[in-house]
Structures are given as structure tokens and as C-alpha cells.
């Protein structure tokens, strides 16, 4: 990230751009007469010392594993009974792209992300936030509380609740029976749809909060003016609201996608990736290769790909934040 251009556009730019006014720096730095070595020591004690516990933790437990990930992705490391691993170059990646199971996992991850994050959480979150602007207060509060509870619940509990909901003997089929509609064993016939809905249930609150905050910032006069001009609900949404909150949309899409890419517990509890591999997204595939098939090297290669896709989205997210404010 050190190559990032240093234009003063980011949210923290005013504070951290190297200031052209040196007398503003270090307000407590004596009266500006400190000699050079003393200034150095001050920087060391004032700047680096408080940062060091966080830096050490981040280096040892985050940066080193990422580096290690990039290393063992190119080896044939296995879980058991192997004296030492050897460097195999891009072999793991070549295997992956010829592996039908891997391609299946990529496809399912794509379906899962598009359905639950892009379409589900994002659209439903925006719809809820829009409706909340107009609804009466008790109903707004009630809906907010229910949707946020689903979000705050631990992942595994959410998994169990939605498992019960989608099971053959579960609530969804009971409702369908009551409506005389055909019921089915959702977790068996359409597992990826079931886990996508589960992720929508669990994740929509975040989008709702982001969009509620964004909609509250739109000045009332603008919507009222459009209303007086006779613009209907949909046209106002399309021509006024959406353009005005486009940055929140971008931010929200990125964060939803990143969260969805790393969902493991929810799917694990509901389907274990099954039946067969019909709901096995990349994190579950990675886990299976590394631990059930004992191929840590291969599993890590998949993890590295996931990490690269995640980093890409993360960089896009940073760029969006930079243009904001």
C-alpha cells in the first residue's frame, strides 16, 4: 500500500498529509529547540512505543500467516506422515483449474455471493431503509429490532435456526402445506438457495443500517421539490435517491461481498457443504482439501486464491472510500 498516491483525497488526508507548516507538528515537543537526536528519541518513544504491541500482534499473527500462506501454496505439504514438503511451483494451481470439484466450488461461491450479497442483502436492505423512512415509528422500531437481532446472533445459532426453518419437517414446509403449495426438502434439493437465504436473513441488517444512515443525509428539500414537480416514487428513487447514495451503495456492496466470501460456519452447520458438494463454497472446499483429504498445500493454494479475490475487493473498497468525503 505504500505506493498509494499521496493526494489529499482520503478521509484522513487533512490530518496525515505531510504538513507544509512544521511549527504545527508535535505541539508538546518542547519549544522547538530540541536537537535532532532528541527528536529522534521522542519519535521513538512517542510514536513507535505505543504502536508496538499492536504492530507485534499484527505482524506475528496476521502478516506472517499471510506470508506463510503464499509460501505453502507452492508446496505439497500434507497433514500427516510426511517428513518434509517440497516446492512444487504452480502445480497446486494447475491441479485446481483442472479439478471439477474446485470449479464447482468457484461456481457455487459465485452463485452464493450474487444471490445473497448483491441481490439479497443489498436490495432488501435498501428496500427496508426506504420503507422505514415513511413508516410509523412503532413498526419501524419493531422491524429494526427483529432484523438486527438476526444479525447479532452468533453465526452457529443462525445456522441452526435456518436449518430448522428449511428442513423437511420445518417451518417453511409447514407454511407451504398450509397454503396448499408443493413442499420439498429444501436442504436436499436446493441447498445453495437455502444457504443463500440464510445469509440474507443474517446479513441484511448491515445494509439496512448503512442505507438508513445514507438516506437520512439526503436533504428533505430535495425530495420534496421532486415531489412537487410530480416525480413519482420510482422516478424519485432512480433519479434522485440512488445517485445521491451511490457511494454508500459501493461501500456496502464491497463489504457485503467480502463478508459473504468468507462465510463458513453458517453453511457448515446447515449442510456441511452437501449433499455431495451441492453447497460447497470455496471456504468449505478449502477446509475439506486441507483436513479431510490432508492436502494442506492444495487447500492453501485455494485459500490464496480466495485471499487474492478478497484483496482485490478490499482495494476497490479503499478506492471508493478515497473518493468519498
Amino acid at each position: 500500500m505504500t505506493t498509494a498516491p499521496r493526494q489529499a483525497t482520503g478521509p484522513d488526508a487533512p490530518k496525515t498529509t505531510p504538513g507544509p507548516a512544521p511549527h504545527q507538528q508535535h505541539p508538546h515537543n518542547g519549544n522547538g529547540t530540541g536537537t535532532r537526536p532528541r527528536a529522534r528519541i521522542r519519535i521513538l518513544t512517542h510514536h513507535l512505543l505505543p504502536l508496538s504491541p499492536a504492530l507485534i500482534l499484527l505482524l506475528l499473527f496476521l502478516a506472517v500467516p499471510i506470508g506463510y500462506c503464499a509460501y505453502i501454496a507452492f508446496t505439497d505439504l500434507q497433514l500427516t506422515g510426511q517428513a518434509h514438503s517440497s516446492f512444487v511451483g504452480f502445480e497446486n494451481f494447475r491441479t485446481a483449474f483442472k479439478d471439477a470439484e474446485f470449479l464447482n466450488a468457484v461456481w457455487l461461491t459465485l452463485v452464493f455471493t450474487v444471490l445473497s450479497s448483491l441481490v439479497g442483502q443489498n436490495t432488501l436492505g435498501l428496500a427496508l431503509a426506504t420503507l422505514m423512512q415513511r413508516a410509523s415509528k412503532p413498526i419501524r422500531t419493531l422491524t429494526g429490532a427483529i432484523v438486527i437481532t438476526a444479525w447479532v446472533l452468533p453465526e452457529v445459532v443462525a445456522g441452526f435456526l435456518l436449518y430448522a426453518f428449511f428442513r423437511r419437517e420445518g417451518t417453511l414446509n409447514a407454511i407451504l402445506d398450509w397454503l396448499h403449495l408443493p413442499s420439498q426438502n429444501w436442504l436436499f434439493t436446493l441447498p445453495i438457495l437455502a444457504v443463500s437465504f440464510a445469509n440474507v436473513w443474517r446479513g441484511t441488517a448491515f445494509s439496512m443500517l448503512v442505507y438508513s444512515a445514507a438516506l437520512n443525509e439526503i436533504p428533505q428539500e430535495i425530495t420534496e421539490a421532486a415531489e412537487v414537480d410530480g416525480a413519482g416514487g420510482w422516478r424519485r428513487m432512480w433519479h434522485i435517491t440512488l445517485p445521491m447514495i451511490r457511494r454508500s451503495i459501493g461501500t456496502n456492496l464491497m463489504l457485503n461481498t467480502l463478508q459473504t466470501l468468507s462465510v463458513f460456519g453458517l453453511i457448515w452447520v446447515m449442510t456441511r457443504g452437501g449433499p455431495g458438494d451441492k453447497s460447497q463454497t470455496l471456504p468449505l472446499f478449502m477446509y475439506e482439501q486441507a483436513f479431510q483429504n490432508s492436502m494442506i498445500g492444495y487447500g492453501t493454494a485455494v485459500a490464496l486464491l480466495l485471499l487474492l479475490v478478497g484483496s482485490l475487493f478490499s482495494v476497490l473498497y479503499l478506492r471508493l472510500l478515497r473518493t468519498e468525503v
Binding site: 499484527l58 500462506c69 505453502i72 462465510v263 477446509y287 494442506i296 492453501t300 485459500a303 479503499l318
Partner: peptide, 18 residues
């Protein structure tokens, strides 16, 4: 900020090995 949005799930296998 970049690290806040990295998928931690992806590095769990190497963390285990480490």
C-alpha cells in the same frame, strides 16, 4: 483499512499449519 476487510477465513489453514 485494507486488512479490516480481508477474509480471515482464507488464512485459517496456514495459521493452523503455523
Amino acid at each position: 483499512l485494507f486488512a479490516t476487510s480481508l477474509p480471515i477465513t482464507a488464512i485459517m489453514v496456514p495459521v493452523y499449519a503455523l
